[in-house]
């Protein structure tokens, strides 16, 4: 394994990391045992889940949505399962009870 890693010459000086935010290469979605599932019908787009998420794993996406009762939203809120650790803060804080924690099955 170690032979595939860069040599001392190839590593930038002092181990300084030159690529900002490259932690995205590490998918923390594996940590999850329960996954949050957003019910777009119930979601009121309050953004609490987006604001509270410690992992920036709740995304505001430009997907207009029209509920069955006719309410129109310019955007939707989605979970980024690559990074969501399944902590459940979003579901716990959702004032509309629009997020369910569903057990992961592998």
């Amino acid at each position: 394994m170690s032979s595939e890693l860069p040599t001392w010459k190839e590593i930038p000086i002092a181990g300084t990391i030159l690529e900002p935010g490259n932690s995205v290469k590490y998918k923390t979605g594996d940590w999850r045992t329960f996954r949050p599932v957003i019910d777009q019908e119930k979601c009121v787009r309050c953004l609490f889940c987006w604001a509270y998420c410690p992992d920036a794993a709740v995304k505001i996406v430009e997907k207009p949505y029209r509920t069955q009762s006719g309410r129109e939203y310019q955007f939707s809120v989605e979970i980024d399962y690559d990074y969501c650790k399944g902590c459940g803060i979003c579901a716990n804080e959702c004032p509309a009870k629009a997020i369910q924690m569903v057990e992961e099955v592998k």
């Binding site: 394994m1 001392w8 590593i11 300084t16 030159l18 900002p20």
Partner: peptide
């Protein structure tokens, strides 16, 4: 040019950085 200085180096990285 944002860089990260002084990260934590696991055993498979530390030695090479000190060898520099």
């Amino acid at each position: 040019k944002p860089v990260t200085m002084g990260p934590i180096a696991m055993p498979e990285w530390y030695y090479e950085i000190k060898y520099q």
